[in-house]
Simulated scan of single mutants.
Amino acid sequence: MDGFMITSRVEQVLAGHKRSDNGFTSFQVSKAIDRVLNGCEIIVSDNNVRVRIQTLKKEHAEVHQLLNMSDFGLDTETRRIVADAIAWDNFIKGKPEFGK
């Protein structure tokens, strides 16, 4: 479902449909809803799309923060963030919300 929403958003940007001041326009959200329905046959609401996009933005920021730290990297095969156990432990002590 996430992939369909993201693909829809990328298509809208490439088509010249810019973001509105408060997030996504109703047109962009409706395109994402259509894409999810056609792609995985799941009906989602306007609110579902908006909340999920906000969650994805937050997760992206977390990943970006980790990848900018010297002890962390990306395993391109598994597409997971990697670090030694000491680096993880030290990081999570300072930011327990990243323990997930």
Score class of each variant (00 low, 15 high):
Thr25Trp: 07
Gly99Leu: 01
Gly39Arg: 02
Thr25Phe: 08
Asp71Thr: 05
Leu66Trp: 03
Ala61Trp: 00
Ala85Tyr: 07
Glu11Tyr: 08
Ser20Gly: 14
Glu41His: 10
Glu41Trp: 02
Ala83His: 03
Lys95Gly: 01
Gly16Thr: 06
Glu41Phe: 07
Glu97Val: 02
Arg50Gln: 15
Phe98Asp: 00
Phe72His: 04
Arg50Thr: 13
Gln12Glu: 14
Arg80Lys: 06
Asp34Ile: 08
Val44Met: 09
Leu56Asp: 15
Lys18Val: 15
Phe27Asn: 13
Asp71Arg: 03
Glu59Asn: 12
Pro96Gln: 00
Leu74Cys: 06
Asp84Tyr: 03
Lys93Gly: 01
Lys57Glu: 13
Gly94Ser: 02
Gly39Ala: 07
Glu97Asp: 04
Glu97Pro: 00
Ala32Ser: 10
Phe72Ala: 02
Gly3Trp: 10
Thr76Ser: 06
Val63Trp: 04
Gly73Pro: 05
Lys31Phe: 09
Glu11Asn: 11
Gly16Gln: 07
Gln65Tyr: 00
Trp88Arg: 03
Phe98Ile: 00
Phe91Tyr: 00
Glu59Met: 09
Phe91Gly: 02
Lys93Leu: 00
Phe98Trp: 01
Leu66Pro: 04
Asn68Arg: 00
Gln54Phe: 12
Ala15Pro: 10
Glu59Arg: 15
Gln12Asn: 13
Asn68Cys: 00
Leu14Pro: 09
Ala83Met: 04
Arg19Ala: 15
Pro96Trp: 00
Ala15Trp: 05
Ala83Tyr: 03
Thr78Arg: 05
Asp89Glu: 05
Gly73Met: 05
Ser26Pro: 14
Met69Glu: 03
Phe72Gly: 02
Lys18Asn: 13
Arg50His: 14
Ser8Gly: 10
Ala15His: 05
Phe72Asn: 03
Lys58Leu: 10
Glu77Ser: 08
Ala87Glu: 05
Lys100Pro: 01
His64Ala: 00
Glu11Asp: 12
Asp46Gly: 12
Leu56Trp: 10
Trp88Phe: 01
His64Ser: 02
Asp89Gly: 02
Lys95Pro: 03
Val51Met: 14
Lys58Tyr: 05
Thr7Ser: 11
Gln12Gly: 11
Ile43Phe: 07
Ser26Ala: 14
Ser20Trp: 06
Gln28Phe: 07
Lys31Gln: 14
Phe27Glu: 15
Thr7Tyr: 11
Asn90Tyr: 02
Leu37Glu: 14
Ser45Ala: 08
Gln65Cys: 00
Gly99Val: 01
Leu74Glu: 04
Ser8Ile: 05
Asn47Glu: 15
Asp84Met: 04
Asn68Leu: 03
Asn68Lys: 03
Phe4Trp: 10
Phe91Pro: 01
Asn47Lys: 15
